[in-house]
Amino acid sequence: MKKKGRGMATIMFGFGYGEGFPDHSIASVEIEKNGKILIRTAAADVGQGVLTVITQIAAEVLKVDPDRFYIIQGDTHLTKNSGSTSATRQTYFTGNAVKEAAEELLAKIYHYASLEFRSNHPQLGVEDGKVFRHDDPENYLTYWQLAEIVEKKGERLYGEASFFPRTYAPDPETGQSERMYVAYTFLTQVAEVEVDTDTGLVEVLKVDSALDLGKAINPQNVEGQLEGGTVQGMGMALMEEQVIREGITLNPDLTGYLVPTALDSPRINSCLVENEDADGPFGAKGVGEPTTIAAAPAIANAIYDAIGVRFYELPITPEKIIRALKEKEKNAL
């Protein structure tokens, strides 16, 4: 028989290294001669899209087409420390470092342009890679023209910044801290499952998600992370299990150690809650790891709703479900 159930879980996740660790990121942005703008960062893009995100951020600050940018990434000779791609921290840390570097550069653009236009910066505007006086917008300098002028003075149109927020170690007695992590991401998910009581197989039909992420700098990217994280969490809930007998792992490969396939994946609806409540770039918070956490408890709750059995150990395999149903039947007699 197939039984349906619905379960909910809410999680919070403090991201960044936190706990007083000297966590920071350094980035620079420079107007190059070739009509390009160069960002330097050591942030590793492992597929999560941090390079897309920082390009958007710099383009937003400098009011210029994202296509103008190129990035030197993760070169120990040419970049400075950005910290690891871990702890859900790159959008927040490197995003902020790039934003501040771009702002530093923008200030220089205003400064040198004000000398050229013999004006004060409030009377100047920037748009589409051009700087101009509001009273005469047709008479503009492109950033690259300005860079050439500045170069003749022996200067560069270059901004560099370090984002280095403070956190504090927890009190060893109470576990409390003034600021344990830089910010917290919240996620609530409702999972709908169907449990086959004959085989113990669980199908996750649908997952509705509300992710409080401050600001979605790239909404499609965020949805991708949310969907991928949810399916990963679903794998932890139902499949991922290292089987060890007498010290030997019996499933040391992906034939035996299972993660969900596309066919196992549920429909996932995403609602992105944008409160801009954090000190991240444009109010953004990290979303990587938080997206993997809520699925398992939500699915466990949904299974309870479907068959009335609580599980306290993951993964909830078909065997465990069948055994639990037998127990339940026995106890009911």
Partner: peptide
Amino acid sequence: DDIRGTAEYRRDVAREIMIN
């Protein structure tokens, strides 16, 4: 018993899928 299921599980499931 193997990583794809215990003997007990297989007997339980065999019964149910036969009925189905």
